[in-house]
Write a protein that binds this DNA or RNA. Structure first.
Lengths: 142, 142
DNA sequence: GGTACGGTGCGACAAAGTCGCAATAGTGGT
DNA sequence: ACCACTATTGCGACTTTGTCGCACCGTACC
C-alpha cells in the first residue's frame, strides 16, 4: 500500500500541493470531486490551481493511492487504503440514489485469488452494485 | 432483465432514437462514450442530437438497461445484461492499461445474498479491480 | 383516427478537463 | 549549505462534456 512519503520511490516528487490534495482526500473520508478538492484546499488559505489538482489526481491514480469512480453525475476520487480500513462495497439505489455499504463480504479475497492465477496482482477492488433499496421497493416501481 | 420493448412498462416511450442508441451499445459489445454513440449513429445516416443521447442514456440508466463507468479518462456506457451473458469482471493494469476478464467468480451471488439481508435488490454488479498485470510485474515497477 | 403529453432538435450556456509556456521549487550530488 | 537539473506549478486560453428552455414532433392509448 502507498503513503504520501512513498511518492519518491515511484519517481515522483513530494510537493506541498500533492500533500494538501492527498490530505484533503484522506480527511474527507468520502468521495470528493476535483472542484471540491480545490475548494477544500483554498479554505485553508492555500490556493491551488485546477490544472494542478487534475494532474496530481492523475499521478495519484498511477501510484494506486487514489481511486476514481463515478457514483453520481460527476467523477469523484477517494483514497484507496485509508488507515484502519475495512473492506466495504457500495449498493446504489436507482430510484432514490441512496448509497448503502456492505462490509466483510470477502469478495476482495476471492477476486485476488482468481486474479493470481493469471499472474495479476490485485491492489484495489472497487465494487458497485445497482438495484432498488428496501424503501423504493415498497413504494413499488419495477 | 430489460429489453428495449419493455420501455413502455417503465413509463417511457419507444422511439427510433432510443432504439438506435441501445442497438449501437448492444452491437459494440464494449464501452462507448456519449460522443462515440453520436458518431456511430450518424454513420448510419440517421442524425441524432447530443442532448438526446445524454437524456436517453439517463433514462436507460434509470431502467437499469445500461451501466455507466469510468474505466479510462471519460465516462462510458454499456448494456448491463446482453443476451447470453456470463458473469465477468475487469482487472485493469495501472501500468499498461490492459484489461483482463475474470469469469465465474460467483461474486455476484455473494453480493446479492448480502444485500438481500438489507432488503436491497441487486440488479447489476460492477466490479473493477486495479493492480499490476503479469507482464508489468516482470518489468519491475512497484 | 385523434389527442395529450413525453420526446426531440436546436442553440446557448455551464461545467469539467486539457495544454503550452514561463516561473518555481524539490532532489541528488558536492 | 549550495548548485544545477528537471519535475512540477500557475496561468490563461482552449476543447470537451454535459445541461437547459423552448417550440415542434410523434408515440401510446383511447
Amino acid at each position: 500500500m502507498s503513503r504520501l512519503a512513498d511518492l519518491p520511490s515511484h519517481g515522483y516528487r513530494r510537493t506541498s500541493q500533492r500533500a494538501a490534495i492527498f490530505e484533503v482526500l484522506e480527511r474527507s473520508g468520502g468521495h470528493l470531486t476535483a472542484a471540491e478538492i480545490v475548494g477544500a484546499i483554498e479554505e485553508r488559505g492555500l490556493p491551488v490551481n485546477r490544472s494542478t489538482v487534475y494532474r496530481t489526481l492523475e499521478t495519484l491514480l498511477d501510484t494506486g493511492m487514489v481511486r476514481a469512480s463515478r457514483l453520481g453525475r460527476s467523477t469523484s476520487y477517494e483514497v484507496t487504503h485509508p488507515a484502519g480500513e475495512v473492506e466495504h462495497h457500495h449498493l446504489v439505489c436507482r430510484d432514490c440514489q441512496a448509497t448503502l455499504h456492505v462490509t466483510g463480504s470477502g469478495v476482495t479475497d476471492i477476486l485476488r485469488a482468481e486474479a493470481a492465477q493469471a499472474g495479476f496482482r490485485v491492489d484495489d477492488v472497487q465494487l458497485t452494485a445497482s438495484g432498488v433499496c428496501r424503501r423504493c421497493r415498497r413504494v413499488r416501481r419495477p
